[in-house]
Amino acid sequence: MALAKRIIPCLDVKDGKVVKGVNFVGLKDAGDPVELAKIYRDQGADELLFLDISASIESRKTRVDLARNVAKVLDIPFTIGGGISSVEDARMVLSNGADKVSVNTSAVENPSLVSELADVFGQQCVVVAIDAKRSKEAPCGFTVCTFGGSHDSLVDAISWAKEVEKRGAGEILLTSIDRDGTKKGYDVELTSLLGSKVSLPVIASGGCGKIEHFLEILSGPHAADAALAASVFHYGTLTVMQVKEYLSENKINVRI
């Protein structure tokens, strides 16, 4: 066998509760993070991503509680992202059980954060989340958005990906702002473009609405190494195991 393609459910967490936004607005309660973590582990999830979208000053404490409570029950890796803007923020969640941290806006505003995190915690801990959308302004055709997709930084997505690779990122979580919440499928053009330009593993995110979308993004040249999804799992449209069995039938190497 070889390295398996990964399926990663994403849980957006606000004030300790899991929520899922459509295009990052219009939040709807969908459960307890620890209970959902257990369900997804039992369904065969390869990893989990918790994205903390709370903005309160209490968020550091709730992130630590989240890391600790999830790590107690989970024997698969998990990442915490959202609100991590310093080495200290990262240390708080990593020392409480998270395996990786994901940084986005804070890294765009302060690129040396990526190098600092890699130096202190090792490359394996550092996921850089890139929210990209189509733009005529950028040479590659995509710019990087920050603040949950609401702000266009005007930074070229490919040059940013190359820079974070150089600075020691271990992985790129690539979200298509154009596709997020649409259920029209992952952005194959964006993902394969970025995949052809960096040698880091790429997790594709945004737009998954049906089982065929997983196959589409995980096959072909410069395919994603992992696919992230939220709503299809949270609302029970698909289980992780259904997705993996379908991929396996279609000759994609997955962990079953």
């Binding site: 066998m1 070889a2 398996a4 390869d46 271990g170 992985e171 052809s196 040698s199 190494d225 962990r255």
Partner: peptide
């Protein structure tokens, strides 16, 4: 040292 383009570094994920 990747000899093919599909071999990403780090080796990250599940393997047998």
């Amino acid at each position: 040292s990747p000899k093919e383009e599909s071999m990403k570094i780090p080796h990250m994920g599940w393997n047998t």
